[in-house]
């Protein structure tokens, strides 16, 4: 325990504080995930439009999301918005804005991909059976598209949770920051705390993300036919 620096965890409320820090990270990712799921669906449908203006807009948006590192986007919103618009955006709010902006793009692309993966003959056969447009979507297209979509969007959730670790860099007090505070406070008493604390945080992230990825893989296998 001493050697691995795990003793620090049981001092005072350190373990509880770490979990609370993780809670902040998870809370920010859950809010961003909900926003991304809802707006991402709409954006995905928007991307399937044949309108050239809609295509250009969604293309540019998607390229920004694909190319810019999330940390750069965080810096732009956190430092840039304050400067350019004179707004005082808190670190938490700017991380929610950035993760939603990023998530909507990614989610939209997934929705577009799964809608376009439904072969044309599915639409045509349904129409030949005399279904209306609404019926075609409700009974034929959406059930198939959703099966492709759900595993991929669950994976997006784990990516979102992992990316929240970046909010440390704009000064949100989350699990890493709490960990650093604990390590600093115990530097003299137990110098090996750095191993115990960072190891614990690594494990905590793993314990949050791993079951979610397993669920995604399970659903993918189950619905792959």
């Amino acid at each position: 325990m001493e050697l691995l620096g795990l003793d620090v965890l049981f001092k005072g409320s350190n373990a509880m504080r770490l979990l609370q820090g993780l809670g902040v990270a998870v809370e920010i990712s859950i809010i961003s995930v909900v926003i991304s799921l809802v707006l991402g669906m709409l954006f995905g449908i928007f991307m399937t439009w044949k309108n050239p203006v809609a295509r250009v807009i969604s293309r540019i948006y998607l390229e920004i999301v694909r190319i810019m590192p999330q940390l750069v986007l965080l810096f732009i919103v956190f430092f840039g918005a304050t400067r350019a618009l004179g707004l005082n955006v808190s670190a938490e709010l700017s991380s929610i804005i950035v993760f939603s902006f990023w998530g909507v793009g990614e989610m939209g692309d997934l929705v577009r991909g799964s809608l376009e993966s439904i072969p044309v003959h599915q639409y045509e056969s349904a129409a030949a059976l005399g279904m209306t447009k609404g019926q075609i979507y409700y009974h034929v297209v959406i059930p198939q598209a959703v099966r492709r979509l759900i595993p991929m969007s669950i994976n997006l959730v784990t990516r979102m949770i992992k990316t929240t670790s970046l909010i440390l860099m704009i000064g949100v007090v989350e699990v890493m920051k709490v960990g650093q505070q604990i390590i600093e406070a115990n530097r003299m008493v137990s110098p090996n705390a750095v191993f115990g604390i960072y190891g614990t945080i690594l494990l905590l992230y793993f314990l949050v993300c791993w079951p979610i990825s397993m669920l995604a893989r399970h659903l993918e296998k189950k619905w792959s036919n």
């Binding site: 620096g5 670790s165 090996n192 750095v194 191993f195 793993f206 990825s213």
Partner: peptide, 23 residues
């Protein structure tokens, strides 16, 4: 594969750079 795919790079780097050398 599971460990590295389910943890953020930032934490992996912190662990490798600050924690491992200590022990």
């Amino acid at each position: 594969i599971e460990l590295y795919r389910n943890t953020p790079l930032l934490i992996q780097l912190f662990f490798m750079y600050f924690a491992l050398p200590r022990v």
